[in-house]
Design a protein around this nucleic acid. Structure first.
Length: 535
RNA sequence: GCCCCUUUAGCUCAACGGCAGAGCAGCCGGCUUUUAACCGGUUGAUGGAGGUUCGAUUCCUCCAGGGGGCACCA
């Protein structure tokens, strides 16, 4: 039956309800118990009465009011069982003609899966032992006009799951728990930072010059100024300005936007945590990173972890987790290695000694090196090609080539490297941090190197940001800075295979060409500034 | 951007190139302790456009969406 017919059928029921004088949307119903609370109340009552009233001829238990969405509906003549669901809990409701009377039972006959109802009634157990509210009054709170997903198999279609997440969520308690876990992680990140005296800041998303990361920005248009502006690709440069302004510890958890394709690990908009602390360096950030991750894992609690024979066993240590069918240990302290040492172990040469040969060696190893790349970029390419995918348990990879780190402070003992680490877990980068460059002369020089890369065609090289340089010239305290891809961290901690499984509303292509062109029309004739003047 | 897979009823799934089936949901009828309730009846579909063929859900081409991989990317 076409969807339109199913909707028409439900609208027909609205008309019938109107004839009965029953509003389709009611607001004056206040539950006395959550479904879980009602269940516990029943259990408590049974304990208090020493089980004496558990017999099937038992009188009614305490009266409650509960509400929820109708997920199952079993009408049998003059009696009807429904399961309502709310906050991930389900509870059976028993609607009987002899309790409700003809008028309200007529409403029962017009119920559909997906409706939201409120029930006043008494707690009891049915013959099969199921906790049940035996209804003495029924209030239709919301009539649903759309057919819900299949009640047993749920919503299987990946595309619909992503595009209509509300359907996915309402048909799957497991999904709701999954996304609640994301909130638990984010809340834990904030708590860890707040406890350490960090101040949460909100900095601009619309920026005249996008900076702080290697990425292409989205461009948008500011009508009033007849000027293009960019959506931020990183938070970094504004948080550093706040250090100049005198805050000692600042952070932001917010959305950044990168003009890239989609993949299981990439969404064009994603959530970044960046934190900056004065008078410390990347070693301080290392300690902070470890705490953030350990705290988040502990906040999530234990998880089933995989066994060699393919099974799983429950483990009460939240730091022993499962990812992709393999055990992952987040037990601190995390391993800590210099990039050059890791490369030396994986290949049979010392990259520091072979410095000038690195582009050639990278090429020989099949590591993709950008054209015109120097030794530093080649070292990074070798590392990413040969080492990074093999790192499983958390590993801090220290001391990146200066060439690929234009915002990090150089090592005093070797100017070819900067004080920077990335934390790699399960072959993926989860965090990136460095001792922040606060020498304006060095910073200007690095920007100029980037500018020449830009001129050579690297459109992801950093643009020179004069306003930022001016801020650094005022004087930024020595500081450590940290960035964590929150979505990827959540993936790790919740064993999610794709970033879309940790984003409530992942970016999707417009479904039809018509949709896309409709947006084009809007963009080509935006409302003028005069038309949209605020009151 | 490239390669592979995929798209059948509102949902979940079938169908050697030969009349497109089922379960759930819906509709009609029955049923006052059901549990994916049950019983009888019933409505409803091949992503879009071409092509090959007597005949296309099936084979081919193109387009669109989705999934996976590569590349880009952190």
């Amino acid at each position: 039956m076409p969807a339109d017919d199913l909707i028409a059928e439900r609208r027909r029921k609205l008309d019938q309800l109107a004839v009965l004088g029953v509003p389709s949307h009611n607001v004056d119903f206040t539950p006395t118990e959550t479904l879980d609370g009602a269940r516990r109340l029943l259990a408590r009552m049974e304990v208090d009465s020493s089980g004496a009233s558990a017999a099937d001829e038992a009188p009614d238990g305490p009266e409650v009011r509960v509400a929820g969405r109708v997920m199952q509906y079993r009408l049998q003549g003059k009696s009807c069982f429904v399961h309502v669901e709310d906050e991930g809990e389900r509870m059976q409701v028993w609607l009987r003609l002899d309790r409700l009377g003809d008028d309200e039972f007529a409403v029962v006959r017009l119920l559909d899966l997906g409706d939201i109802i409120g029930v006043r009634g008494n707690l009891m157990r049915t013959r099969r032992g199921e906790p049940t509210v035996l209804a003495s009054a029924l209030t239709l709170l919301v009539k649903s006009l759309q057919p819900p997903p299949e009640k047993f198999h749920g919503l299987q279609d990946q595309e619909t799951r992503y595009r209509k997440r509300y359907l996915h969520l309402l048909s799957s308690a497991a999904q709701r728990r999954h996304f609640a876990a994301r909130t638990t992680v984010v809340r834990s990140l904030r708590r860890t930072l707040d406890n350490r005296g960090f101040m949460e800041a909100e900095t601009p998303i619309l920026q005249p010059i996008p900076g702080g990361g290697h990425a292409l920005p989205f461009v948008t248009h500011w009508n009033a100024l007849h000027a293009d502006v960019y959506l931020r690709i990183a938070i970094e440069l504004h948080l550093k300005r706040l250090l100049v302004g005198g805050y000692r510890r600042v952070y932001e958890i917010g959305r950044v936007f990168r003009n890239e394709g989609l993949s299981p690990r990439h969404n064009p908009e994603f959530t970044m945590l960046e934190a900056y602390e004065a008078y410390t360096d990347y070693h301080g950030m290392r300690e902070l990173t470890e705490s953030l991750i350990v705290d988040a894992a502990n906040a999530l609690g234990p998880q089933q972890i995989p066994e060699q024979d393919g099974g799983t066993f429950p483990c009460d240590d939240p730091l022993r987790r499962s990812f992709g069918g393999r055990e992952l240990s987040l037990t601190p302290p995390f391993r800590c290695e210099r990039m050059v040492d890791l490369v030396a172990q994986a290949c049979d040469f010392n990259p520091v000694e072979a410095w000038d040969d690195l582009p050639e060696r990278a090429h020989a190893l099949g590591a993709p090196v950008p054209i015109g790349a120097g030794a530093g970029a080649a070292l990074l390419a070798i590392y990413e090609h040969r080492v990074e995918p093999e790192l499983w348990d958390p590993t801090f990879v220290l001391d990146y080539p200066a060439e690929v780190s234009p915002l990090a402070r150089k090592r005093r003992d070797d100017q070819r490297f900067v004080e920077r680490f990335e934390l790699v877990v399960a072959g993926r980068e989860v965090a990136n941090a460095f001792s922040e460059l606060n020498d304006p002369l060095d910073q200007r020089q690095r920007f100029e190197e980037q500018a020449s890369l830009r001129a050579a065609g690297d459109d992801e090289a950093f643009p020179l940001d004069e306003d930022f340089l001016e801020a650094i010239e005022v004087g930024m305290p020595p500081a450590g800075g940290l960035g964590i891809g929150v979505d990827r961290l959540v993936m790790l901690l919740t064993d999610a295979a794709t970033i879309r499984d940790v984003l409530l509303f992942p970016t999707m292509r417009p479904r039809h060409r018509e949709e896309a062109s409709a947006e084009d029309v809007n963009q080509s004739s935006p409302p003028s500034a005069e038309d949209s003047e605020r009151p």
